[in-house]
């Protein structure tokens, strides 16, 4: 297979995998801006439960989303151990609060599957694809889907 990317070796896509609760999820590495430790956020009034608050990212106001709460897995209590993955969603920059970063994956097309039909409680529209590798099953977060009301309000 022809490899046009400089850094990839297998010729697949690269993802950052992270843990939320006892599950693994990932986002495309191209939408990731940086990974940083937890710092105390300023709470926002009148906001959904999964918005932890805002932090100062070198002079810009960065909203932090508790991914666990967003995915319906219960709110997490942020601590020093938590990690913020700063991602770009359209024009906006958002921080995702996760338990830990677990891996950087280089995934070939044969490991990428469409999202299977799962129970509606675990809103499947929040995922784009599923990576099946060895014994791991990692859902790729659909960034546009987890930030819908932010997009709507911006219009």
């Amino acid at each position: 297979m022809q490899d046009e990317h400089e850094q990839t070796t297998v010729g697949g896509e690269e993802f950052i995998a992270f843990r939320v609760g006892d599950q693994e999820f990932c986002v495309e590495i191209t939408s990731t801006r940086e990974i940083r430790g937890w710092s105390q956020a300023t709470r926002l009034p009148h906001s959904p439960e999964y918005i932890v608050g805002v932090i100062n990212l070198r002079g810009t106001i960065l909203p932090i989303m508790d991914l666990s709460a967003r995915l319906g897995m219960g709110s997490s209590t942020p601590s020093e151990r938590h990690v913020i993955i700063v991602v770009q969603v359209g024009e906006k920059t958002v921080g995702l609060l996760v338990d830990s970063v677990s891996d950087i994956l280089d995934v070939g097309p044969d490991h990428l599957r469409p999202v299977p039909e799962v129970s509606p409680s675990m809103a499947s529209e929040m995922f784009r694809r599923v990576i099946v590798m060895d014994k791991r099953i990692i859902c790729e977060i659909c960034l546009d889907a987890i930030t819908p009301d932010m997009e709507l309000q911006a219009a």
Partner: peptide, 18 residues
């Protein structure tokens, strides 16, 4: 600092500052 640039307008809040 605008809250809207990365988030959205929050009722009762005009903006943020550092």
């Amino acid at each position: 600092k605008s809250l809207e640039s990365n988030y959205k307008r929050v009722p009762s809040i005009a903006a943020a500052t550092i």
